[in-house]
């Protein structure tokens, strides 16, 4: 019977006791980074989708300010996340859940932005943005 070829780059390790027992592959952080990048991309898209053309020909400064700050926010968070992930060797369960928590807090940013834009200098949305930071 022909044996199936195992590619070396798949790094399928055989157990020392038996040849048939296969160990799981090492959990590399590539998928974690890819998923996070996807979430960041969606968040930026959601931010821009919230922008509406003004009904009157006015320059809605607060809307643009909140959009710009939020965009800067996402860009900086992504940059720092990208930097930190360079240190990740394995996708440990703890890293996965910390990353999900980080993405969760990021996902609330468009809400703060939209609220800030419509509230016209009301204190609560600004407090919300600061506390979500």
């Amino acid at each position: 019977m022909r044996k199936a070829k195992v590619k070396p780059d798949l790094a399928v390790a055989l157990s020392s006791r038996g040849n048939d027992m296969r160990m799981l592959r090492r959990a590399t952080p590539e998928r974690l980074s890819a998923f996070s990048d996807g979430v960041f991309a969606v968040l930026i898209t959601v931010l821009v989708l919230e922008l509406r053309p003004p009904e009157l020909p006015t320059f809605a400064a607060l809307t643009w300010l909140s959009y710009a700050v939020s965009y800067l926010f996402i860009a900086i968070v992504w940059t720092n996340h990208h930097y930190l992930m360079r240190y990740a060797m394995d996708a440990t369960p703890r890293l996965l859940w910390f990353n999900f928590a980080h993405l969760f807090s990021m996902s609330l940013l468009p809400l703060s932005t939209a609220w800030m834009a419509v509230s016209r200098l009301n204190q609560l949305p600004f407090m919300r943005l600061s506390s979500s930071s």
Partner: peptide, 12 residues
């Protein structure tokens, strides 16, 4: 967000 960032720093 900063709290989760600190957690990531702690882990990585």
């Amino acid at each position: 967000m900063n709290v989760t960032y600190i957690c990531l720093i702690w882990e990585l």
